[in-house]
Amino acid sequence: MNLRSIDLNLLVVLDALLDEAHVSRAAARLNLSQPATSSALDRCRHLFGDPLLERGKGGMRLTPKAEALREPLKNLLVGIAAVVDAPEEPLSEIRQTVRITTADHPGIVIAGPLHHALARSAPGIDLVIQPWHGAPAALDSLARGASDIAVSVFPSIDEAALHCETLLEEQYVVAMRQDHPAALAGFSLDRWLDFPHILVSGRGDTRSGFDDQLSALGKSRRVGIVVPSFLMVPPLLEDSDLIAMMPAHTLPPDAAGRFHIVPPPIPVPGFPLHLAWHRRRDRDRAVQHVANRLRAVFAGPGAPYA
């Protein structure tokens, strides 16, 4: 193949088309007209000898050849950008969307503070908080370039391809209404188990690892309600005898004044919260700036968000 005959701009358009699987959305992302984007797709099909995008049920879908091209194409474009090494753009002038995949728990913590931090330091960076479909799917999304950053718990990763660091070590607390009978009578494991619990599960599970801990002690609990989001927990606690064990950072900022909050009466292991991105984003200023703001969000009370 004669490399001089290849228009590198065509590869940029192809990258957007493979991400969006939609000509109009790719055109809007690149600020191109739809006819120009369609023409670029036709040229890409000729270049690779493959349809790349085909009509399927519910819209366009990538061919196997297109799926195989996604990661090498992204790596190639990042490599070209590194070779060209354009002058560093001031943060205030960057216009870019950064996509973050995260579960409910970190999402509650980061959305507001991160938006306010970026409004001051890099107002042209827009955020997309993507839905959570599990850790393997999040890491695959980073590899495919469908996400830029992931925040959650990642027990194992491919360190050659992905950067992963610990943002914080999360701990569990027990929360109930201020005048809850279990709080007034002296909180203990048995008093805790006398009342129905709230369990947060995105999959609708009625058990968690904590139930296995209780079973080892010859005890069990009643799960009175299962909800899919930590945002649903505070209203349920305020006017009921329900009790919730939840990660400390999922409590609302005014929780200390609204609820009785205590450590679990038996040791309950916490967990690390990780920040990850694909190494092709190591030199992406927008992604790295968002990562720095995320570190500040989790640095503790009074952290400098800007």
Rank of each mutant, 00 (worst) to 15 (best):
I125A: 01
V78T: 02
G79M: 07
L77C: 08
T102D: 03
G112F: 13
H116K: 13
G79Q: 08
I100K: 00
I80K: 01
L76K: 02
H105D: 10
T102N: 03
V83K: 14
L127E: 05
V98C: 09
G124N: 05
R70D: 02
V109W: 00
V98A: 10
R120Q: 14
E88A: 15
H116D: 14
E88T: 14
A117Q: 04
H105F: 08
A111P: 03
P90D: 01
L127H: 05
E89C: 06
L77F: 05
I80H: 07
L77M: 10
V78Y: 05
D104K: 08
A82S: 12
T97D: 03
V109L: 05
E71W: 05
E88L: 13
S92V: 13
P72V: 11
E88R: 14
L77E: 06
I125W: 00
H105C: 12
A122Y: 03
L73S: 03
S121M: 07
P131W: 00
P90N: 08
T97W: 09
P131K: 00
H115G: 04
I80S: 02
Q130M: 09
G112H: 11
N75L: 15
T101H: 01
H116E: 15
I110L: 14
V83R: 12
G112V: 10
L69H: 08
A117Y: 06
I100E: 09
V78L: 01
A111K: 13
L91Y: 07
L76S: 02
V83S: 02
D104I: 10
H105S: 11
E88S: 14
V84C: 01
G112I: 05
P72L: 11
A86L: 15
P72Q: 12
A82H: 10
T101L: 10
R95C: 01
D104P: 12
I80V: 14
H105A: 14
I100L: 11
I108S: 10
S92D: 04
A111I: 06
H116S: 15
V109C: 09
A86W: 04
I110F: 13
I129Q: 06
V78C: 02
G79F: 03
L118Y: 11
L91H: 04
V128W: 09
E71G: 03
L91I: 06
R120V: 10
S121Y: 00
L114C: 08
G107R: 13
P113W: 07
V98W: 08
